[in-house]
């Protein structure tokens, strides 16, 4: 069970663990976050490497890192993946691989992706996704906890076994129809959750069935142990065995004087 906290200025916490039965080295999700200057805020990304592809972890990491180091928030991000793809190929080049591994690598690695840029001054976010990594926004925290955004999937039934994924080898196919973009505004204290598919599907299902975990995620989720407890509870209550990654961002409105400075 891994856990990371971002720089103190941002209230970001990342929780992750590999699927049951696998080692930490076999965990194939990735996440990254980075503070930005223009606009002032943060960029956060999660990516889910496809189990059935090879070297998927490397590709998921490259996607997440590329996003947080980039400045674009729209579909053009995917047109600028050439360096990441080159790096993926370079890491494999010259590696002696048996026939099946070499043939599999030729097919490329695949990953689902979600990137979110938060503009702390304007109090809004822009999200970009391909596949089934999800963003959930909860406002009115501390009271009834209203879910104001679920993106790009809105219901647990929309998760399938074959979401569209981004390949580490460009096959010339246009991604345009698969790219999803959404924007929203933020209020002080809003909670944004970025999650890979299994945990996102389960959180939505719990919500749909009247057992939302938003309050718990906001108030109690703080340590790797508390995340482990949630996963243990989930595994007994419909959480599919997969790699899990959950990034929680609590937005704090920047005081007016700070905005002006």
């Amino acid at each position: 069970m891994k856990h990371a906290k971002a720089a103190n200025e941002c209230d970001i916490k990342v929780f992750s663990c590999p699927k049951s039965g696998n080692s930490l080295e076999e965990y194939e999700d990735a996440w990254a976050h980075r503070q930005t200057r223009t606009p002032v805020g943060i960029r956060v990304a999660v990516a889910d490497g496809a189990t059935e592809s090879s070297f998927a972890k490397l590709w998921a990491v490259l996607l997440a890192e590329s996003y947080v180091r980039s400045e674009v928030t729209g579909a053009e991000f995917f047109a600028r993946l050439k360096p990441a793809r080159r790096l993926w190929r370079r890491r494999l080049a010259g590696r002696p691989l048996p026939w099946f591994a070499s043939e599999k690598a030729e097919q490329g690695a695949f990953a689902a992706f979600l990137g979110v840029q938060i503009d702390a001054h304007k109090n809004h976010w822009t999200a970009l996704a391909v596949g089934d990594c999800c963003l959930m926004q909860v406002d009115n925290v501390g009271k009834e906890m209203r879910v104001v955004e679920m993106f790009p999937l809105q219901k647990s039934s929309q998760f399938t076994m074959s979401p569209y994924l981004i390949g580490s080898r460009s096959n010339g196919e246009s991604l345009n129809e698969r790219i999803q973009i959404s924007k929203g505004s933020l209020r002080d204290g809003d909670m944004l959750l970025l999650a890979t598919d299994a945990v996102a599907a389960w959180l939505l299902k719990q919500h749909e069935e009247g057992r939302p975990l938003w309050k718990w995620l906001y108030r109690k989720l703080s340590t790797p142990e508390s995340f482990a407890a949630m996963v243990a509870y989930g595994r007994k209550n419909g959480l599919r065995n997969d790699d899990f990654t959950l990034v929680r961002v609590i937005h704090h409105d920047v005081p007016v004087e700070a905005k002006e400075s």
Partner: peptide, 11 residues
């Protein structure tokens, strides 16, 4: 089937 089960440099 071998390709489906191939995972990075192993199977």
């Amino acid at each position: 089937l071998c390709i489906r089960c191939a995972k990075s440099d192993s199977i």
